[in-house]
Write a protein that binds this DNA or RNA. Sequence first.
DNA 1: CTGAAAGCGCTTACAG
DNA 2: CTGAAAGCGCTTACAG
Lengths: 332, 332
Amino acid sequence: MITIKDVAKRAGVSPSTVSRALSGKVPVDRETRDRVMEAVRALKYQPNILAKGLKEGRTNTIGLIIPNICNPIFPAVARGVEDVARENGFTVVLCNTDEDMDMERNYVEKLQNRWVDGLIFATAREESRHILELKQRNFPVVLVARHMGEAVDAVVVDNYKSSFEAVRYLIETGHKRICIIVGDRDLILYRERFEGYRHALESAGLPVYPEMILDVSGRDDNGYNAVKNLLEKGIIPDAIFAASDPRAIGAIRAVKDCGLNVPDDISIVGFDDLDISSYIDPPLTTVSQPLYEMGTQAARRLIAMVNGSKDEKPQIKIMKTRLIKRKSVKQR
Amino acid sequence: MITIKDVAKRAGVSPSTVSRALSGKVPVDRETRDRVMEAVRALKYQPNILAKGLKEGRTNTIGLIIPNICNPIFPAVARGVEDVARENGFTVVLCNTDEDMDMERNYVEKLQNRWVDGLIFATAREESRHILELKQRNFPVVLVARHMGEAVDAVVVDNYKSSFEAVRYLIETGHKRICIIVGDRDLILYRERFEGYRHALESAGLPVYPEMILDVSGRDDNGYNAVKNLLEKGIIPDAIFAASDPRAIGAIRAVKDCGLNVPDDISIVGFDDLDISSYIDPPLTTVSQPLYEMGTQAARRLIAMVNGSKDEKPQIKIMKTRLIKRKSVKQR
DNA sequence: CTGAAAGCGCTTACAG
DNA sequence: CTGAAAGCGCTTACAG
């Protein structure tokens, strides 16, 4: 391995001078610098990042903690994070936790020691005390897609409002028996989406049928079975609001497998606007989340924190959603 | 930050002893070790990985270089890599290159210096000279999903055979005018899938219609437009073999948008077997690739190389594919 | 502007 | 079994 000493020898200067010439932050004689640069090129010198990090106390690395990269909302977020990380000379370490708190804590313990300058969590829960602790210790942290109140920086969407509007659209188009497929209501995110649904119905004077609240999470999280069971019991809604696009896609499949038509018999609205959602049949009406931008914003914020402004007060950035009207909803 | 010195002081021993007690590789008096462990717990000591890495010359980190995590085949691969990395005490750095060679080279230069103990590439091309250089320098490298011949370890599927069999199935079910949507034929992978298609037709005495070879790659890579154009020109195949599931999904949409039916008018076979592929309409007949296992195998191999066995000769591991028959193909 | 020295936090021969 | 010392490859006050 080529070290700074090799470069120094070849350029006929001391290692200190090489270091300074490379850093660019300190005046170095122009001719000396040229000699150094020449040696760097000739030797293909690459500074050892570990040594640098050890000395400087930073690594230009951030950690991204997500439940599971196979959940199709996360690739876009991850891509957004990585793009701005790269632009700023950072690299990103990827960690899947499957929502397992112990695994997450292990990761955090491991990464947080000089390994990583800051952490982005897409896994926040109300019981995530370790995130609060990190924050208290002044370790740079930002949340994405989920928030923990005012205590820690986050980039999210307005889940309540988005689903309120989606369900209101269903009501405006004449639907009266509206089913919801919702995710783990231990997550604020899904509670908010549920509340948006409930208040939209209530404010229109429509009933909330308990049997039409389909809680679907974990392994079997795409709503297919839940909807199939509902339909087979003879409970037929005229619309389904799915709290995620995969659940909407599962619901469409279930409706069709029961011999019914989307949207003629049952309208369906999703939440996410994944790439495929416009290609399925019927093209899905859904709430579009700016996932990529959520990733870029979170990374930008985190890098700003790493680069100094640690003690500003936390900001909750609320990104805009949009209801994309396609063909899975019928005017009744 | 708590260092090894703090632990040493509290336990009343030297830093060397703390290091040895923690490593477990060297005999340490039982009572001394207990005192050390006690101090470690009390202080919540976490060794500084940078210092450790600097001294030991390894970081227990691997880099995963992929074209784009938003391409739906890569999340499963990445997940496989990360799962076995974690089991073995490694973390993974994620790099998206968009198939851009310069970006890839930048990443490699940056990571390869002590940053990372080995690299998994899902981006290999024939012109990827930097990968060969890495290999020559004895730097641990393994390829996944694409290979570069016998020179470097790889975990792949038999693309030729898989698509030969898929197309033969189409022929056996009575199809005669079979279109292909293929990807960038600068990639061996797609060339092999194309050859499988061509030889299946030829060996059945069926013509290969040049206008039915749809090359689709880059931005607009889902086949929708290509198929739509073909159909609008009045060229109507009785089957389409798509060299990836996203292309199959785009093709289905295009066929439907032209007022035709899948599979009654046109049968469609894909390649990948993504999660959604069984939920779309019609459920897609497709070649299933074990993406997750390809990730785990690649990581296992790489970690073995990092842990010593660097100079064994390269292995090309060929994973099994399977044609999953669903409803997008009709017996004619 | 430049060099010698100290130090970041570890590990590991070297003695004992 | 244990401690003191050297060293991994950098950066940065401290002198000059």
